[in-house]
Design a binder for these strands. Structure first.
Lengths: 305, 305
DNA sequence: GATATGTGCTGCATTTTTTGCAACACCAAC
DNA sequence: GTTGGTGTTGCAAAAAATGCAGCACATATC
């Protein structure tokens, strides 16, 4: 919508840090952009940028203005989506910030399934750690977040949550594979592969170990769960993973870690607090919530839908 | 702000019912206005007006668009107010929808008191019955509502409420003036003057009488409390009024109606649910809430602040 | 049934707004 | 000082919005 053009440009300047750079990106001249901003500031009644010798930086007023714009933009999209819906067209665009764990099976299946009924709806998926996911919601960069054990929970509204036990994963021929359930200390006795502290699984392990004698001594620490899943196939090591991303694989075994050692964390579907989502987004969220519900009913066991 | 101009015009057309009328009001030609709307609809992707042979009417999509505009407009004002505040200027504009009862003493004193500290803040007061007040909030026509016994309470968020007993009012020399407290049936035995059914006081009386034998037979039914207050000075009649609008007056007497007959209603300060108010408005609301609090501490007795 | 009055819409000339180009003034680093 | 970066401004060109006049159509009114 053209009436938000000035705000878009303001955002571009704020991001680029200078009028000239932003102008180049937007394919207009610096002078035009400059005057747009001046005109806006005059109309608005207050300057929204600090003029430094090195360029432009938003002042607090500008931050407020930008936030207003983002909310306005998002709400307009919601309205458009709603109108499209009542016109009989189910179209729209859904942006999701999610944990890596849901990438291999859960999320692709959910998206494909939704698109079967509503082929007009498109998606964008951002892989984020739990903190970034909440930031994304707050800045309207993402509509939904599907994350394991979020952190702040301010401005973050839970749509649905399901407890997810942590599993130890290893190659099929690993000694622990003969067991039904394993203890955390047993796992750590082997070489182990763990996520970096940004992630919920790691957080749960850290919390659990605080009151125990065992310590972590990972052979590999990584921010990629895909790497963890594949690494344990190459060395006799133990990895950690939550149920939702696991699926039967003849080479891989996973065993639940005793709840006495490691309480289940929560896989949470959420949105920005107080925001009303576009129709397509809301319906997709409802579908995912149902799927999470079903997951819980099934006992949290790893399985493809 | 100029970027909302198109929305303003759309609103004007919706209200006027025709492009030509709206164009005249806006001091532009019908053709310009027409093209603005066409351009908007094309950009938006859907028509927002029904073209009737008699003029234009918003379709459901248009209603959504208008609602969006009102929300965004209000939010922009909030941002401006907030910026003005952090720039050290306390300025702004507060719009209140209120019951008649608070007009004589309570509200004027509150406004004057606030303006003493913040002379940059201006006010607009709309007298509304309790139902209209809520509509005003919903359509962003008013920022605050101060009403006795609101009706719907959906989309209406209570900021503060204080119980208000109903008083019988009459001339100083009325027989009932010798009593400390009066019964409802006693009042109705005299000629009585009551508000129309739109008002909370009337509603309370109606509810009370449902389970009793007494019936209403008013000599005067009116939507003006000012008229009620003045009428009982001219004829030996009984009127009804809530505490907040009463003040010592040598010619007028008021006596509390027994709570056994008539439970106190609530005087409620509220806003549109989920909306964040401009700084000036929020502070004024806080001041009024404090005053209501003090009113309650004082036992709800009629008195000027 | 003809007329009159209202509606929204459109082609074209005009006005207003926005933009691009070039130059200027300033600052920081080299 | 020179160089490369910044924001800003005068002026002319381009683009967008507007006003005018007239069209086509529907609904009242006589």
């Amino acid at each position: 919508m053209r009436h938000l053009q000035t705000f878009r440009l303001i955002e571009a300047v704020a991001k680029a840090g200078s009028i000239r750079k932003a102008a180049e990106d937007a394919n207009i001249t610096a002078s035009a952009l400059n005057r747009r901003i001046q005109r806006f500031e005059e109309e608005f009644g207050f300057p929204i940028f600090e003029r430094l010798s090195t360029g432009m930086r938003l002042n607090p007023a500008g931050e407020l203005v930008l936030q207003h714009y983002r909310g306005q933009h998002s709400d307009l999209q919601r309205v458009q989506s709603q109108v499209a819906d009542l016109a009989g067209v189910r179209r729209g665009h859904v942006t999701i910030a999610c944990s890596q764990a849901v990438l291999p099976y859960f999320l692709p299946w959910q998206i494909a399934h939704y698109r079967q009924d509503h082929p007009g709806v498109t998606f964008r998926v951002h892989v984020r750690d739990r903190e970034q996911a909440e930031t994304d919601l707050a800045s309207f960069s993402s509509d939904l977040a599907l994350v394991f054990e979020p952190v702040h929970l301010v401005d973050f509204q839970i749509i649905h949550q399901v407890p997810q036990p942590v599993y130890a994963i290893f190659a099929q021929d690993h000694p622990l594979a003969r067991r039904e359930q394993v203890r955390l200390s047993e796992c750590l006795a082997y070489d182990h592969v763990i996520p970096t502290p940004d992630y919920g699984v790691r957080n749960l392990i850290d919390m659990a170990l605080k009151q125990r004698s065992s310590r972590l001594s990972p052979v590999l620490e990584t921010d990629s769960f895909e790497l963890i899943r594949h690494y344990v196939l190459n060395e006799r090591a133990v990895g950690f993973h939550i149920a939702v991303g696991l699926e039967a694989d003849p080479r891989l075994a996973f065993r639940r870690i005793s709840e006495r050692d490691l309480p289940p964390g929560n896989l949470i579907l959420g949105q920005k607090r107080g925001r009303s989502l576009p129709v397509a987004t809301a319906r997709f969220a409802a579908q995912v919530a149902d799927a999470l519900e079903a997951l819980e009913q099934a006992g949290g066991a790893p399985a493809a839908p």
